[in-house]
Design a protein around this nucleic acid. Structure first.
Lengths: 143, 143
DNA sequence: CCGTATCCATTCCGATACTG
DNA sequence: CAGTATCGGAATGGATACGG
């Protein structure tokens, strides 16, 4: 029996899990957000086996999360850059980080211009900020 | 060789992945947000094998995401309710949902009081809403 | 330095059968 | 309905050796 796949599932969470729902993919994406781009940077930074890293990078490229860009420092090797779709994973990474943070946080989301820290929050249509506990999930919203 | 674990990792994302970074856990949590509480509801709704579901629920209870509450309709069985820590996973679920959404969304986050839809956004300290692409991750922020 | 290919242990998953 | 026990197959993950 094969493991069930969720790529064609109606639920977006399920489809997302199908792409980044393994132990390494999200950590690679996180490293990319910190600024890592090279195979070796991911490899030594995460301590992941090289074949695993190869596999994950390939899948993430196929999923449109990363793209291979030709150079950067002039070397003949490729680098891995987040695509637009990949950069849109930032809320996921930050949400996970906010959830599990205890005290020592190795990274913080900041405003790109001012450099000041930002938070991930829920916002209603009229601009109010809501506490997560004031938000609920409603199934099959039509409209 | 055992699979590497991240429970003691400094990175909160890694620790989060250690808890909810498998295929089923996040989907169970998602179902819980929609309102599912019973073993059978998870089982038929997700189509997961019962032994797997047993294992995941046990681990999620041990991780403090779920707690077993005595009753609800008077039956002698237990139900699974999200703890405070579990409810704080809502941004993660919503972020994943927002990322993978194409058109058909089986659920939407709404304001618990007004019932109107809400979005997950970045907010700066002075109250401005930032686009994800205007946010970057800075490593080892001190302060 | 950047990957690829192979090998092997572990783990995971799903089906089934069984108990209360 | 709510679980537990077991079992076989599949996929994963890690180490290592190898090639550009």
């Amino acid at each position: 029996m094969k493991r069930t796949r969720f790529a064609g599932d109606a639920c977006p969470v399920a489809r997302a899990v199908d792409v980044v729902g393994d132990w390494w993919s999200l950590l690679i994406v996180r490293d990319a957000f910190i600024g890592r781009r090279r195979f070796g940077e991911f490899q030594t930074g995460l301590g992941v086996a090289k074949n695993i890293l190869t596999d994950r990078l390939r899948k993430l490229v196929a999923a449109g999360v990363f793209e291979q860009v030709p150079a950067a420092d002039g070397s003949k090797h490729k680098e891995y850059a987040l695509t637009e779709k990949g950069r849109e994973l930032l809320p996921v990474v930050v949400a996970l980080g906010q959830w599990a943070t205890c005290d020592a946080t190795p990274f913080t989301p900041v405003d790109r211009e001012t450099g000041r820290p930002v938070r991930l929050v829920f916002r209603s249509a009229d601009g109010r900020t809501l506490d997560p506990r004031d938000v609920r999930l409603t199934p099959a919203e039509t409209g």
